[in-house]
Amino acid sequence: MKQKIFFLGLAALLIFSSCQKVITIDLNKTNPQLVVDGQITDQPGPYIVKLTETTDFFTPGAYPQIKGAIVTITDLQGITETLQNMDNGTYQTAKLSGTPGHTYVLNISYGGKSYTATSSMPMPVDIDSMTYGWDLSGRRPRLTLHGYFTDPQGINNYYRMHFLRNDSLMDSSNFLIYSDDKVDGKQAVINYRRGINIGDSITLQLMCIDKGVYDFYRTANDILGRSQITSAAPSNPLSNMSAGAVGCFTAYTIRQKKILLQ
């Protein structure tokens, strides 16, 4: 018994007793910057562009909505449409129809400045299948979902994933993305186990995005939460917006599959 206590004591000393607390820091005031969150997909519209502004870091509450902008989307292989201003910081299309293989240009004119972004809609990739099972490698078995899709060979593909639990989007602490930078033309498997239970119906949405959008999500993940820790010099993500605006305009395709965990 004594020996056991001794070892427990040693172990306690060894395990880095890291401790966390919320602290107060003074951060500088910032100049508000346009934030773009816009998309066009291969599903029927309307498509929405949401405009807000950055705030100081500790400013509570909602972000200021940008209501007085002129927003257009041009299909380089088709029409240009001026989006309808919904007066709550969102702007939506009426005519445009997203088509894989087309390239779209977003133009925003606001406060005497103009901002643009270009995004190409890749060809869609289907989900081959979904399964689930118990991962036994941990202390207790964990329910794990597997989604399979086949990456097209010879071209660069970039993906983003969403998981919906009982048809509502599950929170995620970062952007779930995947690229074939290192693995090309193989069947890929996506494992997911956070917050799912027997009885849930889970939908996997697989989105195909272009490199510019992927780089935005990838570099955004580098500064999310604790990822800041090991980054020697965190910086703003690579945005596809011009003129200092932040955020991203993305043209993507979407395919989905649903499975009931029972």
């Binding site: 910057q33 950055t54 705030t55 100081d56 995620s172 602490s173 965190p234 703003n236 932040v246 955020g247």
Partner: peptide, 18 residues
């Protein structure tokens, strides 16, 4: 490097560095 500002994209909070 600390953020001075913040914004959100798709409901995810992002630090804004100046």
């Amino acid at each position: 490097t600390f953020p001075s500002g913040k914004y959100e994209v798709n409901g995810i909070l992002l630090d804004y560095y100046t």
